[in-house]
Simulated assay, not measured.
Amino acid sequence: MPRGRFPDALSLLAQTTSPRRRTIVEHAAPKAGTVHLEQTELVYELTEDLVRLVERTEPDPGPEPGSVEHSQADFEAIADALLSKGAPDTLTVFAYGSLIWNPEFEHEKVVRAVATGWHRSFCLKLIRWRGTRELPALMLALDRGGACEGP
């Protein structure tokens, strides 16, 4: 398979899995008698082989031309500047993605909250690591409109 190109999902499933058939039977009782509907559907299962086919490792091309990456010293200076305006006694973090199940920092409690005016959306384009400039990957982020519920 050429790098960065994938067949459509149904084609990929057909090539890599063998579906099992499941019969669905529905009975209805309309005014004049009984109707018996039978339908067969193909049920595909997500297998390790299928997951391996969609994993994509991309070399890191580096930052966009003309952009400058921040150093650790830059990040520390930004943090110091923010904290100089007043360090909070507590910090509230709104978790809407992986922070819900994998916070990666110690926390005292979890409180359910709603971010009104924002919704979860695969709107953040990644052109490094998961994607390329030619074929960006999408990552979950918050986008304007709607509402988003956290834990």
Rank of each mutant, 00 (worst) to 15 (best):
R20Q: 15
P103H: 07
P136I: 02
T57S: 13
E58Y: 14
L91P: 11
R5S: 12
K109R: 13
G86L: 10
R5C: 11
G146L: 00
K125V: 03
T17K: 07
D60C: 08
D89F: 10
T90W: 13
W101K: 14
V51P: 00
I100E: 13
G4A: 02
L140N: 05
V93T: 12
L53E: 09
R128D: 01
L10D: 10
P88A: 14
S121H: 02
D8C: 09
R56P: 04
T40N: 03
G86Y: 12
L138S: 05
E41R: 10
A95C: 15
L135M: 12
I100L: 15
V51Y: 00
E108Y: 05
E76F: 07
R21Q: 15
I100K: 12
D8L: 07
P88E: 11
A32R: 15
R144A: 09
A141D: 10
T90Y: 14
L10G: 05
R144Y: 06
E134W: 04
Y96A: 08
D49E: 11
T40K: 01
V25T: 15
D89L: 13
T40H: 02
T132G: 01
N102P: 02
E48W: 03
P59N: 07
L37I: 06
L42G: 04
D60E: 08
H119S: 03
T17N: 14
H107K: 08
A115P: 00
G131Q: 01
